[in-house]
Design a protein around this nucleic acid. Sequence first.
DNA 1: TCGTTGATTATCT
DNA 2: GATAATCAACGAC
Length: 206
Amino acid sequence: MAFQQKLTPDFFTRPDVVTIARDLIGKSFYSCFDGVLTGGMVVETEAYSGTSDAACHAHLGRRTKRTQIMYQQGGVAYVYLIYGIYSLFNVVTNVEGTADAVLIRALEPLEGIEEMRLRRGLPKIEPRLTAGPGLLTQALGISTQHNGTDLSGTEIWFEDRGVHIPENQIIAGPRVGVAYAGADALLPWRFSLQGNRWVSKANPKY
DNA sequence: TCGTTGATTATCT
DNA sequence: GATAATCAACGAC
C-alpha cells in the first residue's frame, strides 16, 4: 500500500544529512494554510552540514538568533530571508546540538497548482512556478514567520507517496551560490532528479 | 540566448 | 555599514 505517509521525526534525526538530502528526492512536500493545500514532489535539494561546513550559517559553531533553530532536533523548519526578498526553506536534521539542515531547492507541482500560480502571479503554468528555492516558498505561501514550524504538524510536512527513484536518476553536484565557502563549495552535496523539467535553472554544469 | 545588474532587509561586524 | 544558500528585467548581440 504505497499511499501517502507523512514522514516522521525519525526520518530527520538520522545522523547523515547528505543521505537525508538524497532520500528527500522523490518525496512530497506540502503546506496547508487556511484550508488551502499546496505542494509537490521534491526534485532538488542541498545538504548543509553544521559546524564543519564553510557554506553553512552555523559554521564553526556560530550560534546566533538566526542559526539557533538549526541546533534543534531534526524535523523542524528553518526559514530565513535572503537578499532582503526571498524566503528559503530548510529542514533541520540530526539530533539536538548539531546544526545540520537540508535546503529544498525545487518541486514538481502536484496539489493546488492554481493556487500556487496565483501566489506567484504568473499568467500560466511554467517551471518558474516552483523551480528555485526562493520560488517554491512563494508558491507554497511559506515565509520567515514559519521559522521553527514542527514538520509533524498540520501546516507544513513531507510525505512518502511510494515513488521510487532509481539511484542512477539522482544527480549529485556542487551547491549553488556558495562560492565564498572555498573548498567546501565544491562538495557534491546538491541533489537533483535527472531530466526533470522542474529542477531549478540556475544550474552550473557538471 | 547570454551576461549584467537592481531589488530590499534581517543579520552580523 | 556590508553582505547574503536569489530572481527577473533589461540590453547587447
